[in-house]
Simulated assay, not measured.
Amino acid sequence: MRSCKQNRGLIISLIRREVLGRYKGSVMGLFWSFFNPILMLAVYTFVFSVVFKARWNVNSTSKTEFALVLFAGLLIFNVFSECITRAPGLILGNVNYVKKVIFPLEILPVIALGASFFHFLISLSVWLLFYVIFFGLPSVYFLELPLVMIPLLLLALGFSLFLSSLGVYVRDIGQIIGVAMTVLMFLTPIFYPISSLPPEYQDVMRLNPMTFIVDQARDLMIWGKSMNWSLWAVWMVVSSTIASLGFAWFQKTRRGFADVI
């Protein structure tokens, strides 16, 4: 936190450069940040609600509701997935910063997280627009969504710190993480409600932190339910611990970055 505070100007500047640089030279520019989530939403909705005849509620046949429920889960998961997928290459992709003694390397995962969060806000605005058009204003509990995001951001930051450091020493980690994120996406209740699973599998699924975060986000965004504060407190402790351990690992291993690279 102290490093982020001291380097907040640099972090904001690099996040802006990261976001704009991704679309630099493209015809549509930042419009891609709107187009991509809408396209993926349309594809997933067609595959699951039309091809596989999936329904979130047994009594509901609304493809619009299914699309918004699906989109809400993808919004949350994509923040985590984008950060973790990019993490192993963060240091290797910024060798020039490693050679600069005064550059705070620990902010690189923060920058990646900031860019991912920017795209989350864009996608959330798209979701909110469609929700208002078809169902009206969401519940007042929607305002609790930023609190749900805190353990998610801490988890993403902690794992990003750990993986960005590990990626310097073990180059295969990037390939492993790509497969792991695909597996995790289907082990998170994004495309199906956790209640549709047998009870013994539900208990295992709840060990996945993304299960709690995705379910809670949907409760606030769609179902009009308040947050489970006791579980939120538990995952806050867990995510804070992971973030702290990730930072400690990063600081311990960063001394060898220049030699290995």
Rank of each mutant, 00 (worst) to 15 (best):
G73Y: 10
E144M: 06
N57P: 11
F46C: 05
P88A: 02
I107P: 05
N59Y: 14
A54I: 10
C83D: 01
W56S: 08
V148H: 06
V51P: 00
N78S: 15
C83W: 00
V148N: 13
A42L: 12
E65C: 07
S49G: 06
N94D: 11
T64V: 14
H119I: 01
T61D: 11
R55N: 14
L137K: 15
V51R: 08
M149V: 00
N94C: 14
L90P: 11
L68C: 03
W127T: 06
L70K: 00
L129R: 01
V43P: 01
F80W: 06
Y141S: 10
A72P: 06
L70P: 00
S62C: 06
M149D: 07
Y141W: 12
N94I: 10
F130M: 02
V43M: 10
V43A: 10
L143D: 13
V69M: 05
M149R: 08
A72S: 13
V79W: 02
Y97N: 13
H119C: 00
L90V: 01
F71Y: 12
T61I: 02
I133E: 05
K63T: 10
L39V: 09
V126Q: 02
E144T: 08
V95W: 08
V58F: 07
F77S: 07
L70T: 00
L128G: 09
G93E: 08
